[in-house]
Structure formats: C-alpha cells, structure tokens
Amino acid sequence: MLDEPTASLDPDIADKVRKLVRRIQKERSPAILYTSHNMRDIEEVCDRVLFLHKGEILTEGTPEQIVAHFDEEDLENVFIKVARGHENPVENPPA
C-alpha cells in the first residue's frame, strides 16, 4: 500500500518515485493499492482507478475509461468536476 507517496516531493523526485513504482510493477507484477490526490500519479501509475467519497465508490475503471466517460482531458479535470458536484458519477458509471 502506497499512501500519497509523492506528496510534498519536488517534481524531479516525484517523477523518480513514479518511475520506481512502474519498474517494480513491470518486474514483479505486485498488487499495489496507491492512494493519492495527485491525478498525474494516478494516470501514470495505475491501471484501475476508484474515486471514493465518504467510503462510497463514485466511479471506477481504467484512467482512459473514466476520462472518456466524463468527456474531460485528464483525471484532474474529472476529479474537479466530481468534487464540485457537477456530475453524479454513481448514476452514470463508465462503461
């Protein structure tokens, strides 16, 4: 379990952490639970994504499925849309 592994890191070190995680994934294929508010981390490292709010799964899928479903450019824009209540993802989950 990695909980906010790049929080408070400068961009160079955060990039190195993401690359390390990806290398470990490729070499060992472990199951990793990666929690973060940094959507760049999520897009680069995770192959499945869950958005949680108060213990409820709001939406889940691959980063690409979620971005396409919400018609956004990236997960950060999806996060903002959902957090601000502009979309109810529970009623409209990704395909």
Rank of each mutant, 00 (worst) to 15 (best):
7 A>N: 03
73 E>W: 03
46 C>P: 00
24 I>G: 08
81 K>F: 03
23 R>Y: 05
56 E>S: 10
11 P>Q: 12
58 L>F: 01
65 Q>P: 01
3 D>P: 10
57 I>S: 07
94 P>L: 10
26 K>A: 15
47 D>S: 15
86 H>I: 00
19 K>Y: 05
93 P>A: 06
88 N>L: 02
12 D>A: 10
94 P>R: 06
13 I>W: 11
91 E>R: 12
41 D>I: 01
60 E>T: 15
36 S>M: 00
83 A>H: 04
20 L>C: 03
21 V>H: 02
8 S>F: 12
36 S>W: 02
53 H>M: 03
53 H>A: 05
61 G>T: 08
12 D>L: 14
65 Q>H: 05
89 P>V: 11
23 R>H: 08
22 R>S: 10
43 E>A: 13
18 R>T: 06
90 V>R: 12
66 I>D: 06
92 N>K: 15
85 G>M: 01
22 R>D: 07
11 P>R: 14
83 A>Y: 03
49 V>K: 11
18 R>D: 08
36 S>D: 09
1 M>Y: 13
88 N>K: 05
74 D>P: 07
16 K>Q: 15
23 R>G: 00
51 F>M: 13
80 I>Y: 02
89 P>E: 11
73 E>L: 11
46 C>Q: 02
60 E>D: 10
49 V>M: 12
47 D>W: 01
1 M>F: 14
70 F>C: 04
14 A>F: 11
84 R>I: 00
18 R>N: 09
44 E>L: 13
80 I>H: 00
